[in-house]
Amino acid sequence: MSQWVRKGLATGIKTTCYPGREETAPGVSPGLPLGGDYPEKQASELVKRCTVGALSFQNHKLVVDYRRCVHCYRCIRGVTLPIAWQQGYEWATDTNIIETRKKFVRAFDRSLNIIVVDTGDCGACLNEVRQLNNPYYNMHRLGFFITPTPREADVLLIVGPLTDHMREPLRKVYDAIPMPKWVIAVGACALSGGVFSPSFVCDENISEFLPVDVEVPGQPPPPLAILHALLVVAGLKPPASLITQSVSLKHEEVKKQ
């Protein structure tokens, strides 16, 4: 058994520098399309190529609905004038409900127990959540723990579109979590049903079924984006405003920071 101890020590520290500093390793994030001012011709071509309806052209601006973007890359590949692309991963956005629960924030500022419910996920988001436990992200160092039972959970993390068969289990999990509790919806499927809705088995997004506090767009959002969501819940990072605010504004803010 000593070989494992030696191996473990020899491997050294792999953990990311985030949230202390920005993680710059290649391949940690798929990035997201960037809205803003585009020539009308280019914009309309892009909107046409987007089969999931994430892009729209409003008030002479190309607006990206990050809830719907499924990383099909059709607005950047196989097109003459591609859309601008942003890297980064701090995508977690809080919804308005958060204000009413401010008083509970202190309850979460040390450690979070997270219950993960897969409500019909394709496996990618779930795998990215699983990566949070690997040495690269090691969320334990930040006081985040996955728990198998809702009784000791603070945060309900949902991945995947809400399938019909999973409604009742999800409701049971939510009810079984003691107050105060937060809900994080991870991935485009959870936020909008993604490519799977509307249909007779998953016809609504999760926020219509449960109050969602933090939303993480992306399909799948990289582990760092999910980590960001947890940090938002713990009050250790400010939320991004990808979804709620105008996209170009957000872009400028990011630049300023």
Binding site: P150, P169, A176, P178, M179
Partner: peptide, 14 residues
């Protein structure tokens, strides 16, 4: 504190 009485946790089965 508000006390919420709830069913036993059964893994989410029906």
């Amino acid at each position: 504190r508000c006390v919420i009485r709830n069913q036993r946790w059964d893994g989410g089965i029906r």
